[in-house]
């Protein structure tokens, strides 16, 4: 941990009801990290994300993002939810959605020329500028997810938080998505919730393992034993060879997945 940590969590416990979802969590994330938050369903991954965003408050302990409370640092964070949670019949264009990332200044919330330029720039970054006038609902799943990334980027975030961006999209699109994230990583810190261990191995620099408790590993350390520790003892290992074929099998130990 250092003074310029992007994220600094100290002894945080959080419970929705009686049973804590997260218990005694300590975590620090350094600038330009690409951290993957992994763990089984219901382990508290999304809860951790929501705590960082300040959408919920910890019962005990302290959370600092850029050395301030999450609420104060909100405008430095870009949040990307799962597109599947949104109403797909909502009548908005792609540009309208991206512009939402510029809200928050002024009472009325009218958009300036600057806002529109920023929105166009981030649509260009995710390679969807030619879809700006199209309806959000007409896009494919992968494209919608990219629109949400563009929306987060318009706010010029220093920390990008993604909630399972690769669920509900196919493998080819997933590859495009993390190539893009890898590029973004050169100018911002990225934290990504994922239950996809394959995704973890390829671009991720560190792995935050969540299952009520939180343990951090550098990617190189991840092996079968650690995976077993995170997901519990009664899991089976299945090799996903389609992930390993591209770069041969030299990262064999990274290719084990609990799924």
């Amino acid at each position: 941990m250092s003074a310029n940590s992007v994220v600094d969590i100290q002894n945080v416990t959080f419970a929705y009801a009686k049973e804590p979802v997260l218990e005694n969590v300590n975590l620090s994330v350094e600038p330009h990290d690409f951290a993957s938050i992994v763990g089984p369903n219901g382990s508290g991954k999304t809860t951790l994300l929501k705590l960082l965003l300040g959408l919920i408050k910890p019962d005990t302990g302290e959370i600092k993002v850029f050395n301030h409370t999450p609420k104060k640092s909100r405008f430095r964070m870009g949040y990307i939810p799962q597109y599947i949670d949104l109403d797909l019949h909502f009548p908005v264009t792609v540009l309208d959605v991206v512009l939402m990332g510029r809200l928050g200044h002024g009472l009325g919330g009218r958009f300036s020329k600057e806002d529109k330029q920023a929105a166009s720039a981030s649509l260009e970054e995710v390679d969807l500028i030619d879809r700006a006038g199209q309806q959000f609902s007409e896009l494919s799943g992968g494209q919608r997810q990219r629109v949400l990334i563009a929306r987060a980027l318009t706010g010029n975030p220093d920390l990008l938080l993604l909630d399972e961006p690769t669920s509900n999209i196919d493998l080819r699109v997933e590859k495009v998505m993390f190539d893009m994230l890898q590029e973004l990583n050169s100018r911002m810190t990225i934290m990504i919730v994922s239950h996809d261990m394959g995704f973890v191995s390829q671009v991720v620099k560190s792995v935050i393992c969540v299952n009520r408790k939180v343990v951090v590993h550098p990617t190189s350390e991840i092996n079968g034993e650690i995976i077993q520790e995170i997901y519990g003892a009664d899991l089976r290992m299945i090799r996903h060879d389609h992930r390993c074929s591209e770069g041969g099998h030299e990262h064999d130990r990274d290719c084990k997945s609990p799924f």
Binding site: L53, L55, R74, Y79, P81, L86, M100, G101, G104, R151
Partner: peptide, 12 residues
């Protein structure tokens, strides 16, 4: 109406 949670994160 579109994404209540995101709106909140934009300080609304």
């Amino acid at each position: 109406c579109f994404d209540d949670e995101f709106a909140r994160l934009r300080g609304i």
